[in-house]
Simulated scan of single mutants.
Amino acid sequence: MEEQTKVDKDYLESFNQGYEVAKELGLKSDALEGINAGNNRIQAMKDGIEQYNKEQTLEKDIIPPFDMDSIDKSYIDISDPKKDKDKGMDMDL
């Protein structure tokens, strides 16, 4: 049987807000470092920011940026597009 973890509604809301703020503004994990609050709201926002940054790091490691200069273009002939206009399959009727 699967174990289900209950997450406090306020924590989840704050976590998601932190995640979205990091996504929109590009905040790093230490952005809220000096802020201490009596409740878990700030910690949840910090956790959301940290999660977003972890995902971005993983994405950069998994999917390298596409580099047009690295494509081997030696096999592409773009000299005259009309040159091969009438070449292709013949249909005899």
Score class of each variant (00 low, 15 high):
residue 9 K to Q: 09
residue 63 I to V: 14
residue 8 D to N: 12
residue 46 K to C: 03
residue 17 Q to E: 11
residue 59 E to H: 15
residue 17 Q to K: 13
residue 58 L to H: 13
residue 17 Q to F: 07
residue 43 Q to S: 14
residue 60 K to S: 15
residue 25 L to F: 11
residue 10 D to W: 13
residue 27 L to I: 03
residue 55 E to S: 09
residue 32 L to A: 10
residue 22 A to V: 00
residue 10 D to C: 07
residue 13 E to V: 08
residue 54 K to M: 11
residue 50 E to C: 02
residue 43 Q to F: 06
residue 10 D to M: 10
residue 15 F to D: 00
residue 10 D to N: 13
residue 55 E to C: 12
residue 42 I to R: 02
residue 26 G to F: 00
residue 13 E to L: 10
residue 21 V to T: 05
residue 46 K to S: 06
residue 9 K to Y: 09
residue 53 N to V: 01
residue 19 Y to C: 02
residue 59 E to R: 15
residue 18 G to R: 02
residue 34 G to R: 10
residue 13 E to K: 13
residue 11 Y to V: 03
residue 20 E to A: 12
residue 52 Y to K: 04
residue 45 M to Q: 10
residue 10 D to P: 00
residue 60 K to T: 12
residue 43 Q to M: 07
residue 43 Q to C: 02
residue 58 L to K: 14
residue 64 P to T: 06
residue 17 Q to M: 05
residue 31 A to Y: 13
residue 53 N to R: 07
residue 41 R to L: 06
residue 11 Y to R: 07
residue 34 G to C: 03
residue 48 G to W: 01
residue 49 I to E: 00
residue 52 Y to P: 00
residue 55 E to P: 03
residue 12 L to R: 13
residue 30 D to T: 08
residue 24 E to I: 03
residue 48 G to R: 09
residue 44 A to R: 03
residue 46 K to G: 02
residue 49 I to M: 08
residue 14 S to T: 02
residue 46 K to I: 06
residue 28 K to Y: 05
residue 44 A to S: 07
residue 14 S to I: 00
residue 29 S to K: 15
